[in-house]
């Protein structure tokens, strides 16, 4: 089974991501010279291209070939709720789907480990879950 996570972003957002990762294009140039990391070389090429094409839309996909992944009904409800109801914490997510937070916590952790969701810092040490993609495609 091939699972593909699809995310759309603009050139402007891509550059913001690059700045968060590398600070500046000159920092990345220096880093590449030091490490010869080919992924950095490609990031550099893309960054140079996007400086002049800020409004272009990019489709980012992440494909995974696996026979191990299984998404339960609860996993799908969690993903759907995160996408559409934007919970402010895991507890808020549990409340929105009428489940105990102790049952939701391990599910959320596994979805994070599998790359479906990420967290950003919220109020009072809470973690705000968000989806890392816009679509999931499954190929069998």
């Amino acid at each position: 089974m091939i699972i593909t996570l699809v995310k759309k972003q603009t050139g402007h957002e891509f550059i913001r991501e690059m700045e968060e990762t590398y600070n500046s294009i000159s920092e990345l140039e220096k880093l590449f010279e030091r490490t010869n990391n080919m992924k950095m070389y490609v990031d550099l090429e893309n960054w140079r291209y996007y400086r002049d094409n800020l409004d272009e839309e990019i489709e980012l996909t992440e494909s995974l070939v696996t026979n191990k992944l299984s998404l339960s009904d609860l996993d799908l409800i969690i993903l759907n709720t995160i996408k559409h109801e934007k919970p402010r914490s895991i507890r808020d997510l549990a409340n929105k789907i009428n489940k105990d937070v102790s049952n939701v916590q391990p599910k959320v952790k596994r979805l994070e480990e599998e790359g479906f969701i990420k967290f950003e810092a919220g109020a009072k040490n809470s973690k705000i879950p968000y989806l890392t993609f816009d679509e999931i495609k499954l190929e069998i």
Binding site: N46, E57, E59, T61
Partner: peptide, 11 residues
Amino acid sequence: MTRKIQNKHRI
């Protein structure tokens, strides 16, 4: 229009 595509494949 999507003109650029970036993919990440895990094998």
